[in-house]
Design a protein around this nucleic acid. Structure first.
Length: 830
RNA sequence: GCCGGAGUGGCGGAACAGGCAGACGCGCGCGACUCAAAAUCGCGUUCCUUCGGGAGUGUGGGUUCGAUUCCCACCUUCGGCACCA
């Protein structure tokens, strides 16, 4: 029976049999508890990357483990197939994006199958299939009907290389580059479709009942950027001298520090603010217009760079500070952004560094209103703003009120001033968010057409349901010209208005691919269903997603979008619960052997196919689980993989070349049983907590014990058989092929090991009989004593003091205290 | 600048509701088998040591009988945000 371990023969054979038998089909079974295990779907960019293995194979092992624990587990797979990378690659190679994409999918399917994962391939969903994007379009319509999709003219982020607009989330890094191609983005004023993500800003900050990493929650919380404060109304002052059309009106500002209102000595509007034209006096008009023109020429990057010197210009207009009636000049400056708050601020130079710099540059008044303890702030001589705690001064009725450091309503000064503003009718408590609505229009070809029609008399209307999907035509020029390729098609855009039936034009932009991936977990439920995006009974059984695995880089993109999507659908009564995914875990990333990100140009790419050819899928799986903290990742190591290589070879040898008969020894058998059940407890716990490296190390340790204790007399006993049985069951989730081969063909046990239950741990058997207690003297380890399990404190103390080595260190002194921690140690304090 | 991870042998990493630091593996060294090499197996492997011990989990303090684990202040590094009023 002794043969060499040959994964290249074993693995494809079992993969074919499992598939032929439908072993991993997940079907509704109300008699079983369900578990929806989801791993982020891959983008069909060419070849499967070792990174895909790193996300998917540990996730697969855990899904298999759950299945052995009695869950009806669904572990689906699909492709996020629309989007820029496919289109760009297709342009570079001069093939049609569709052809390129589907060729890659065919290739990646083969590669994915070589993992030996328990994917239910019947549920495969591909976002660029018409049967899929029909429902992406349908969801768009639903959002439109709810007012959650809308069209507006707005300055949006634009990638000049990819020639398309981008969502704010897709602009990254300190120099604000395109998430896909790394080109610095520019701003463009365009009519675009948006999703009203801001409607859910506050709710997205809550994570009710879900187990998501703090890290992701923090990233999302920062991204959403909630600020508490007050909106305050400043009346525009009547003209002090001739010029300017200033017949009343008011300017609203948002501030997180209403307690500093008495120190607001001027106001600043964004140059694009609609009131600028009204406020500007004739005298100032040429200068103001010149400043605005100059601002427009600047890129957003220049404008938003925090370290440039603040510039601005006086409009000539004034407003009245509502708390003290003082007339304050109104300026415009590009450090005030039209896209946040009201696009206007009250400037408090004494307590805000930006306002301070601006005031000093233009000689504006600085009035301290928060006095720190023991220091006298003087507006004339201050060298920087004082943004910290103190006592309110020069603040009318609030003089003497303590102001703490924090912004928002937790600061009592902020709260009481806000309440006072409300009673005076000049302000109200308010909240602002950094989050912007999601721009979803893309001026590119390879995406789902936005199902909207524009008619000169009826405006924008959705395509009727029975005309969905709006098919993406194959025969267009899909070169990126900056215009939507669909617009350049001579015929496609022409249609009739769904309302008046007159000639009308289709929307020629396509949907951001992140929209398609916001609901893919729902399509897996019923991928062939054509009456709706999913079948209700499938939803009722499988949702929500119980465990979701993927990269943390999606924290402020996909993972916000999909939560928004779920909440929107919930409010339309299409889905239940407040969150789509109950548990989220992020893996790290595998780098090249040189420690850099893998890239073809660096020549450090590890090809999983080659590793599988060399070592087998089970070994690659085991290495990826064993070699890293899953949450951290790290460089691929061409030497460390030899550990798992040897391990699985030794496992093979143990089962195929059983040890020679020995004299049975009950003590060795008892020890083996103890180790087996201890390992079982530890491995179970490691699966629970996604600690894949200690699953493998536990199995390696147990193998060592089986070999050693077998030779010592455990071999051939019932305990031996039990240990080997437990061993294969524990091996099955991590190395499914070798476990199946050894179980079914070598041990002759009933097919399939993957239908077997997870073994039950015997806590009694796992308990140690003899306890080795470390003995410390003054906290330093001096000796170890053996005690029978179940000893008393007094026995432990006596035994510890009796130790010769301990006595040497106690050195005749009387112990002040003896600490006995049962099961841990004895510490003698002298 | 602000927010959040992470710093443990030559390397990947274990152990943390405070209790034997370095499990498991890689690499390395010595040995066995072999004509030889590979593979395999056995032993060893944190550092220093006068062999009694001593030091040691990024640095410096603190709490404690006892700290990799908790607290304070730093340093390094990796992410994220960045004129957000």
């Amino acid at each position: 029976m002794a043969t060499n371990y040959d994964p290249s023969e074993i693995e494809p054979r079992w993969q074919q049999k499992w598939e032929a038998d439908g072993l991993y089909h997940a079907d509704i079974d109300p008699s079983m508890p369900k578990h929806y295990a989801l791993t982020m779907l891959p983008y069909p960019s060419g070849d499967l990357h070792i990174g895909h293995w790193y996300i998917m194979t540990p996730s697969d092992a855990r899904a298999r483990w759950l299945r052995m624990n009695g869950y009806n587990v669904m572990f689906p797979i699909g492709f996020d197939a629309f989007g820029l990378p496919a289109e760009n690659a297709a342009i570079a190679r001069n093939i049609h994006p569709k052809k390129w994409t589907y060729k890659n999918i065919a290739n990646m399917r083969v590669q994915l199958r070589s993992m030996g994962a328990m994917f239910d391939w019947r549920r495969e969903a591909i976002s660029s299939d018409p049967s899929y994007y029909k429902w992406s379009q349908w969801f768009f319509k639903k959002l439109f009907e709810q007012g959650l999709a809308y069209r507006k003219l707005a300055p949006v982020d634009y990638c000049p290389k990819d020639n398309t607009t981008l969502a704010r989330e897709q602009v990254i890094g300190e120099n604000r580059v395109c998430e896909r191609c790394g080109t610095p983005v520019t701003k463009k004023e365009l009519e675009q479709w948006f999703f009203r993500t801001t409607k859910y800003a506050d709710e997205l900050l809550q994570y009710p009942g879900i187990d998501w990493p703090d890290r992701i929650r923090t990233l999302q919380t920062n991204w959403i950027g909630r600020s508490e404060g007050a909106t305050v109304v400043f009346q525009i002052s009547p003209p002090a001298e001739a010029g300017g059309d200033q017949g009343g009106g008011s300017i609203e500002v948002f501030t997180t520090r209403p307690d500093t209102l008495w120190g607001a000595t001027f106001m600043v509007l964004a140059p694009e603010h609609p009131l600028v034209a009204r406020l500007t006096t004739d005298e100032q008009r040429p200068a103001v217009e010149a400043y605005i023109a100059q601002t427009l020429r600047q890129t957003d990057i220049q404008r938003e760079a925090a370290d440039t010197e603040k510039t601005g210009i006086f409009t000539g207009g004034y407003a009245v500070n509502p708390v003290n009636g003082e007339r304050v000049p109104v300026w415009i400056a590009d450090y005030v952004l039209m896209t946040y708050g009201t696009g206007a601020i009250m400037a408090v130079p004494a307590h805000d560094q930006r306002d301070f710099e601006f005031a000093r540059r233009y000689g504006l008044a600085v009035q301290p209103v928060i006095q720190p303890e023991g220091v006298e702030l003087d507006g004339a001589t201050m060298t920087e703003a004082y943004p910290h705690a103190g006592v309110m001064v020069n603040s009318g009725p609030f003089d003497g009120t303590p102001a703490t450091e924090g912004k928002g309503m937790k600061n009592p000064a902020v709260r009481s001033v806000t309440e006072w503003l409300e009673t005076k009718g000049v302000g109200r408590a308010d909240v602002n968010y950094r989050l912007r609505d999601w721009t979803i229009s893309r001026q590119r070809y390879w995406g789902a057409p936005i199902p909207m029609v524009h008619c000169t008399s009826c405006g924008w209307n959705p395509v009727p349901d029975d005309e969905l999907p709006v098919l993406l035509p194959d025969d267009v020029e899909w070169l990126p010209t900056g215009e939507s390729p669909l617009k350049l098609d001579p015929t496609w855009k022409h249609t009739t208005c769904p309302v008046c039936n007159e000639p009308a034009e289709r929307e020629t932009d396509t949907l951001d691919t992140f929209m398609c991936s916001s609901w893919y977990h729902l399509r897996y439920l019923s991928p062939d269903y054509d009456e709706g995006p999913f079948r209700q009974e499938d939803y009722d059984y499988w949702m929500p997603v119980d465990s979701y695995t993927g990269g943390a880089e999606h924290a402020t993109m996909h993972l916000i979008y999909t939560r928004f999507f779920h909440k929107a659908l919930r409010d339309m009564h299409m889905v239940e619960g407040h969150e789509p995914m109950l548990q989220l875990r992020n893996q790290g990333h595998i780098l090249g052997p040189d420690g850099n990100r893998m890239s073809k140009s660096k020549g450090n790419v590890i090809d999983p196919d080659e590793q599988v050819r060399r070592y087998g899928a089970d070994t690659v799986r085991a290495y990826l689980m064993f070699g890293y903290r899953w949450s951290e990742g790290g460089p691929w190591n061409t030497e460390n993989i030899h550990g798992p290589v040897r391990w699985l070879r030794r496992v093979w040898d143990l089962f195929t070349s059983p040890p020679p008969p020995v004299e049975p020894d009950p003590e060795a058998a008892r020890q083996l049983r103890r180790k087996a059940h201890q390992t079982l407890i530890q491995v179970t716990q490691s699966f629970e907590t996604y600690q894949f490296n200690t699953i493998i190390s536990g199995l390696m340790e147990l193998l060592n014990s089986i070999v050693d204790l077998g030779a010592a007399g455990a071999a051939g006993t019932d305990t031996w058989d039990e240990a080997l049985d437990i061993y294969l069951r524990m091996l099955a989730p991590v190395a499914p092929h070798i476990a199946e081969e050894l179980w079914t063909n070598v041990m002759g046990k009933p097919y399939s090991i993957h239908l077997q239950p997870w073994p039950e741990a015997d806590a009694e058997a796992a308990r140690e009989e003899v306890v080795v207690m470390p003995v410390q003297v003054n906290g330093k380890l001096r000796d170890r004593i053996e005690l029978p399990a179940g000893f008393t404190r007094a026995e432990a103390e006596t035994a510890a003091l009796a130790s010769e080595i301990v006595q040497r260190f106690v050195d005749g002194k009387t112990p002040k205290k003896v600490i006995v921690v049962p099961g841990k140690l004895v510490n003698i304090v002298v």
